[in-house]
Amino acid sequence: MTTRVSIDSDKCIGSGMCALTAPAVFTQDDDGYGVVLAGREGGDGDSLLKEAARSCPVQAVTVSG
């Protein structure tokens, strides 16, 4: 089963918690907003993904699957 990972850019405030929690999956763009790294949209079931979603103060990170 493939894990789907996304960031709602309309909600993201650029706290950076996702990138700090799971740096292999998330980074921040030039403006400081969260971005899923290329090729990681499908995720790999990394246990840190759900922690990254929980750590987002505005719940912009979604992990499903």
Rank of each mutant, 00 (worst) to 15 (best):
M1E: 11
M1S: 14
M1R: 13
T2N: 11
T2E: 13
T3A: 07
V5C: 06
V5F: 01
V5P: 01
S6T: 08
S6C: 03
I7G: 01
I7V: 15
D8V: 02
D10C: 05
K11G: 05
C12W: 03
C12L: 10
C12P: 06
G16D: 05
G16T: 08
G16L: 04
M17D: 14
M17N: 14
A19N: 08
A19F: 09
L20H: 12
T21E: 10
T21V: 12
A22N: 07
A22E: 07
P23V: 03
A24N: 13
A24T: 12
A24Y: 09
V25E: 07
V25Y: 12
V25Q: 07
F26K: 03
F26C: 04
T27N: 11
T27Y: 01
Q28A: 06
D29G: 07
D29C: 08
D30K: 08
D31I: 05
D31F: 10
G32D: 08
G32T: 05
Y33M: 13
Y33L: 13
Y33T: 08
Y33W: 11
G34T: 08
G34S: 14
V36P: 02
V36C: 01
L37H: 04
L37W: 03
A38E: 15
A38M: 11
R40K: 15
R40E: 15
R40D: 08
G42W: 10
G42C: 02
G42K: 12
G42A: 10
G43R: 03
G43H: 09
D44M: 12
D44H: 14
D44W: 13
D46S: 14
S47M: 11
L48V: 07
L49Q: 03
L49H: 00
L49A: 06
L49G: 00
L49P: 02
K50G: 15
E51I: 14
A52S: 05
A52L: 04
A53L: 07
A53G: 07
A53S: 09
R54P: 00
R54G: 05
R54E: 11
R54F: 10
S55F: 09
C56Q: 04
C56A: 10
P57Y: 01
P57Q: 01
V58P: 05
Q59M: 11
Q59I: 06
A60Y: 00
T62P: 00
T62Q: 03
V63Y: 00
S64T: 13
S64E: 11
